[in-house]
Amino acid sequence: MHTAARPEGARPGAVGYGPNLQAFAVYLMVVHFIPVHRCVELLASLTGAVPSVGFVHGVLTRAAGVLTEVDKRIHTLAYAVCCDETPLRVGPRTPNQAERDLRPAKVQQNISGRLTIEKRTKDRYRIRGSLSTAGKHGRNMIEALREAIRGHPWMPPDPTPA
């Protein structure tokens, strides 16, 4: 019997999924609002790997934890660079990207029929905010997730003086 080396970012244990599958799971749930059971089914259909619902929830929690410092930096930079005085309107269509980034919770609620526990909702916002910011800086969201799962999250650069 031959055993392959465990990929970087795979957790120890009897079954260890690498950073690609972990990133796909988080991406499907956070960016495309796929409920956890459907996410597991989709991963099984596309990859042959059958992670548990608990694994998917766990990787979501771990990804949010790794992105804590990124989230703090984004909030600091947003406050220091610009303050949008537009009133917050989550429901109406809006050209304001910051307001559009708040819509995922409502979409998630419409798709799954409910929002999950408050901590999981905060985790989704933290991940979504980090991915949205990375995307605005020209980064690929899946690659940004992979790097975060590997323990090397992308950090927004310092603003350039105008």
Rank of each mutant, 00 (worst) to 15 (best):
M1I: 13
R6G: 10
P12Q: 04
F24A: 07
F24I: 13
V26E: 06
L28D: 06
V31Y: 04
F33I: 00
H37N: 11
V40C: 12
L46C: 03
T47Q: 07
A49H: 14
V53E: 07
F55N: 00
V56R: 08
L60G: 10
T68C: 04
V70F: 02
V70L: 00
V70C: 04
K72S: 11
R73G: 02
I74K: 13
H75A: 14
A78S: 15
Y79S: 10
D84H: 12
T86Q: 03
V90C: 09
V90Y: 02
V90E: 12
G91R: 10
P92E: 13
P95C: 03
N96I: 14
N96Y: 04
Q97G: 00
A98N: 12
R100S: 03
R100T: 11
D101N: 08
P104L: 10
K106N: 10
V107H: 02
R114M: 14
I117W: 14
I117G: 15
T121K: 05
R124L: 04
G129M: 13
L131N: 04
G135N: 00
E143C: 01
A144G: 03
A144C: 08
R146E: 15
A148N: 01
R150A: 05
P153G: 00
P153R: 02
P153I: 02
P156K: 10
P161M: 01
A162Q: 14
